[in-house]
Design a protein around this nucleic acid. Structure first.
Lengths: 156, 156
DNA sequence: TATTGTTATACTCTATAACTATA
DNA sequence: TATAGTTATAGAGTATAACAATA
């Protein structure tokens, strides 16, 4: 079925936004947690990397430092994460989930996953394998690109 | 390789946001056009469905009417689309690309596609086929869900 | 001087509530 | 009364520019 790079690109460009639209609205409908996608991803990252710095999180999520700083402000205000000055280097900040943050993340993750699972249950085993394979093919292509041109001090 | 619905869901939940992050930043870096993803998708829809109403577009993009109205405001201000009262039903609005809108859309589409194509060119033919298959499996699952609870007249 | 992060400012995205105009 | 759309308001997401504190 010879798929050209062009074909693949068009398919990805069409379908990825559809998926995100659904995920976004699913997350918003969980009135208990009520997280945006970037907030959810930030909590996920801190769940796996407790004590990460602001730069660490910004790198991973793909936001500039000021944007991430503001996002973190909101999560700190809601007491979902803690923010402390790093002991060794006082310029740095140490971010972690609070226990409340962890349970909100778990609830949101479970609920979103549960929704997706019902969708995926409609697929055949072969189709599920194809989707998993495709995700594993795509992940490294979109995983790491710095894209953070911001450098924190512009003189002009 | 028995992928459970749970596996598939986890993969999709992890990879879809990575893809979108990249698409977003690619579009933003095209300084000429400088479209957000929803703006780009709106222009795409109008390219395929000239003369669509506001409700048509809102349904397709998955926004409420007020949100779409505002998004359209911005595109009209930038002279990328035209907005006229429908002849037969004067409550309706008729949206179309302007010639400028069409060329901006073409430029943005080409550039984003070109970027994706370079990524996809790194894949083997079998991998490309897998990705296309997966996208065709996922598309119908995420294509149509109303999710528009807004009905335009609340009395409370 | 370089690095880490915050503040200031300004858009866009998104929603709900309330409204207008038309049917 | 029902439908199509806009306006008002508000909060989140995002960026750049400018700054403060620390190394």
């Amino acid at each position: 079925m010879a798929a050209s790079p062009d074909d693949v690109a068009r398919h990805v460009l069409e379908v990825a936004p559809l998926i995100m639209r659904t995920l976004r609205s699913e997350m918003r409908q969980q009135r208990a947690s009520d997280l945006s996608v970037p907030q959810f991803r930030t909590l996920s990252f801190l769940n796996r990397h407790p004590g990460a710095s602001l730069s660490d999180v910004a790198d991973h999520i793909g936001l500039t430092l000021p944007s991430m700083s503001k996002l973190v402000d909101g999560l700190v205000d809601r007491k979902l994460i803690s923010r402390h000055t790093h002991a060794g280097d006082r310029r740095r900040v140490t971010l972690s989930l609070t226990s409340r943050g962890r349970s909100v993340w778990v609830a949101s993750h479970q609920a979103t996953l549960a929704y997706l699972i019902t969708q995926m249950a409609a697929l055949t085993e072969a189709q599920r394998a194809t989707v998993v394979d495709a995700m594993e093919i795509l992940r490294p292509l979109f995983s790491r690109e710095p894209l953070r041109s911001y450098n924190g001090h512009s003189r002009n």
